[in-house]
């Protein structure tokens, strides 16, 4: 059943991606200005030659179809701003950075969020619970673009423990602050979700049975309850991943990381049509694939769900 379900979902993603590409394509094209505006004023002949070289002189509809065709062949076209590179090369360079940053943040948010939420639920209404949930609420209320400069101010400027920015070839020292800044709000959210569903689960009959059987507390919490209580957390993974991808745009900018996100805003401002489209497409595909994985995980751990 599973392969058929995956195939169905992948087919279902086609309209989504098509709409995304279409909206993005026409949005950036109807923008005033073009990719060659920022340079010194080009003579009209040269401008016309440039536009002809990149096929920008054709009708918009033709360009759109051409673009769709080349995307389907896996070619995202040449970049206007970085004229020595293709968009594929630029993304191949930035994507691993963004993936490491976002992946680490998502893992951290999940791992610590679940642990904190479980402890809070286990000691429900104790002082520890209030402390943890109070901090979680604070974590949710502080956006990551506020948190990042504060972290830099303390850990890089005042204490001098960690670098204030830069990638350093992906060294751990350089990763710590960006990952924390990116992960913290979602970690707090995961903690709250986990606590909420854990509190409910701990009240259910099977937990009482397990306690009556004399199972050790860690087994009840970690093995029996968590499996049920994690369902809402798993379904939050999709939105969380999308939010982390979005958040990494600012985080990459604040910490000066060579990821994919920085291409996006810069590319849009410079009307680097193909680069912007490339990033949008990669992100769209990423989110679609991630949502699919989440749904499969969900179905695997929740026996009530059957693939249709």
């Amino acid at each position: 059943m599973l392969p058929r379900y995956i195939l169905k979902r992948l087919l279902g993603a086609i309209p989504t991606l098509l709409i995304l590409v279409t909206i993005a394509f026409f949005l950036i094209r109807i923008a005033p200005g073009g990719p060659f505006d920022d340079d010194r004023n080009l003579p009209p002949d040269i401008l016309a030659n440039l536009e002809a070289k990149y096929n920008l002189d054709q009708p918009l509809g033709v360009q759109y179809l051409n673009y769709l065709g080349s995307v389907l062949r896996g070619d995202l076209g040449p970049s206007f701003q970085y004229s020595d590179f293709t968009v594929n090369e630029l993304i191949a360079e930035g994507f691993p950075v963004s993936l490491r940053l976002g992946g680490s943040a998502l893992l951290m948010a999940l791992l610590f969020g679940v642990i904190i939420g479980t402890i809070a639920a286990w000691r429900q209404n104790s002082r520890l619970d209030y402390l943890l949930m109070g901090s979680a609420m604070t974590g949710i209320a502080i956006p990551n673009f506020v948190l990042a400069p504060i972290l830099i101010l303390f850990f890089a400027v005042y204490f001098g423990w960690l670098p204030a920015g830069g990638w350093g070839g992906g060294a751990l020292r350089n990763m710590v602050l960006p990952v924390i800044a990116l992960a913290l709000p979602y970690m707090a959210y995961v903690a709250r979700l986990t606590r909420g569903s854990m509190v409910e689960t701990l009240r259910s009959d099977f937990v009482r049975t397990a306690r009556a059987k004399g199972l050790p507390e860690w087994k009840i919490l970690g093995k029996h309850s968590l499996k049920v209580a994690l369902l809402p957390v798993v379904s939050y993974l999709g939105p969380a991943a999308a939010a982390i991808i979005t958040g990494s745009v600012v985080i990459e900018q604040i910490f000066g990381l060579p990821g994919m996100g920085r291409y996006f805003v810069q590319g849009a401002l410079n009307r680097d049509y193909t680069l912007v489209m490339g990033v949008v497409i990669v992100i769209g595909v990423l989110i679609v694939v991630f949502n699919l994985i989440v749904d499969i995980i969900y179905a695997l751990i929740d026996p009530r769900i059957r693939y249709e």
């Binding site: 989504t16 993005a24 769209g284 989110i287």
Partner: peptide, 19 residues
Amino acid sequence: DILYALPFMFLVILLMVVF
């Protein structure tokens, strides 16, 4: 569902840049 799956923040950024 379809709109939900779009990376909306990116489209909003595009919109702001464009207009």
